[in-house]
């Protein structure tokens, strides 16, 4: 399994001006959560131009379908992205998941209103707001997320203040 390099993945998307929003564990980390996560989850915009940019950004990172049998013919190109919606990928910079929709987020266009721009890896990156992230985690309804929701809610606690929250 490739080493997870969240910064490399974000930088690759930024280089091609991909329109995306960071969600999931990396968003939680950026907001201040002290918890390990091993993949980058993003919501991407489903416009023809942006789909081309996603494919171009990922091409140098040799994307493959995570968990699929070895040798399975798969190309993460614009045509594949158009035909699908959500992709769980492995790359040379580690795992990355592209979502068109997610729980409590029907599209990029809807989520962009609940995102903040944060300087990461030398570029301005959209990261889902803390309240929306909690809503999304609640919407997913996964038992493994309950602990994270508790931690995220503590981030809003004034007692935890004293640093530089992301939003």
């Amino acid at each position: 399994m490739s080493l997870f390099q969240a910064d490399e993945l974000i930088a690759a998307l930024c280089r091609e001006n991909v329109e995306f929003i960071v969600i999931g564990g990396v968003a939680a980390t950026v907001h201040g959560l002290d918890r390990y996560t091993s993949d980058l989850d993003v919501i991407y915009r489903r416009t023809p131009d942006n789909i081309q940019r996603v494919a171009k950004a990922m091409d140098p990172l040799s994307p493959s379908l995570r968990g699929a049998p070895e040798g399975l013919p798969f190309r993460f190109d614009a045509e594949t992205i158009v035909r699908g919606l959500n992709f769980t990928l492995m790359s040379t910079a580690g795992p990355i998941d592209f979502f068109a929709t997610a729980p409590a987020a029907t599209s990029y266009e809807e989520l962009v209103e609940h995102s903040v721009s944060i300087k990461l890896c030398g570029c301005d990156v959209l990261v889902v707001e803390l309240d929306k992230l909690i809503e999304m985690k609640r919407g997913a309804g996964r038992v493994k997320d309950f602990e994270m929701i508790a931690m995220l809610e503590e981030l809003k606690n004034p007692l935890a203040d004293g640093g530089e929250p992301a939003s």
């Binding site: 080493l3 997870f4 390099q5 969240a6 910064d7 974000i10 990396v26 980390t29 950026v30 907001h31 201040g32 959560l33 002290d34 390990y36 996560t37 091993s38 580690g94 944060i118 300087k119 990461l120 890896c121 990261v127 508790a150 931690m151 809610e153 503590e154 981030l155 606690n157 007692l159 935890a160 203040d161 004293g162 640093g163 530089e164 929250p165 992301a166």
Partner: peptide
């Protein structure tokens, strides 16, 4: 929530978002 270590959160909030991302990269 009862078991959340608030001291870890406080320490993490002292970092900038970029520093938090780099901490995750180092941990990975």
């Amino acid at each position: 929530r009862r078991d959340v270590d608030i001291t870890l959160i406080r320490e993490n909030l002292k970092l900038t978002p970029e520093q938090r991302l780099q901490k995750l990269v180092a941990r990975a």
